Computed example of a mutant assay.
Amino acid sequence: MITSPSSLRRSERSRRATLDAALELCTEKGYGRVTVEAIAARAGVSKKTIYRWWPSKGAVLLEAFTEALVGATPFVDTGDIAADLRTHINGAVRLMSTAPYGPAYAGILSEMHHDDDLAAAVRDQLVGPRVEGAVARLRGAQEQGQIPETADLPLAVEMLYGPVYYRHVLRKPAQDEATVASLVAHVLRSLGAGE
């Protein structure tokens, strides 16, 4: 007797196919030329299915980018905050410097200036949780005595991520590992780490 896969599995396959199709099309055509219709056709799902799960193509690509970023930039704790931050920031730089993720995220950042719902989703689904994770990792370093208790951790996160996004948004060359190491060292010094 042949049994059909559960609707949950079928939904996950469709979700994954949709995310992959959106990323592939973004690489091939550029963010601006991707449509929900094209994503649906490439993924083998209906437009109705996509709109049931996401309100726009930006939301589809945001989910795909967020999943990739979370996987590429874990907040590890090896006991060495400088090494952990270098690993984390280098992971983000690599992801944003390669197709399909870099072009997809550049398109999302551009579109969110004209789409308040997408802007809110970027803040709620991507930026907010990543900032919380970074602050938590820095707080762990504080508890280990690597960063002074008086350090402004949210500001430190902005100092770490700001240069990465600045280069990405302005389409400047991405930082290399030496530049990331210098950035991390500078931010830690500004916090009074190691004093």
Rank of each mutant, 00 (worst) to 15 (best):
S97D: 06
A120P: 05
R130H: 10
L109Y: 10
K172S: 09
V184W: 03
T98H: 13
Q142D: 02
E149G: 15
A99D: 06
A121G: 00
S182G: 14
H168T: 04
Y105W: 11
A82P: 00
H186L: 15
P163I: 14
G140N: 05
E149W: 14
I108N: 01
H168V: 05
A178K: 04
E132D: 15
A104E: 02
H186N: 15
R123F: 05
L160F: 00
A141R: 06
H114Y: 10
E158W: 06
V122L: 09
Q142M: 11
T78R: 06
H114L: 14
A151S: 09
P148L: 15
V122G: 06
A121P: 00
R171S: 05
V127W: 14
V157I: 04
Y165R: 08
V164H: 09
D176N: 14
A83G: 09
A120V: 08
L188D: 02
L153K: 11
R94G: 08
A174V: 04
V135K: 07
I81A: 09
S182E: 13
L170T: 12
G91N: 08
A121F: 00
M159Q: 14
A185P: 00
Y165I: 02
R86G: 03
F75K: 15
L118I: 03
M96R: 13
Y161P: 00
E143N: 02
A106Y: 07
L85K: 13
R137C: 03
N90K: 09
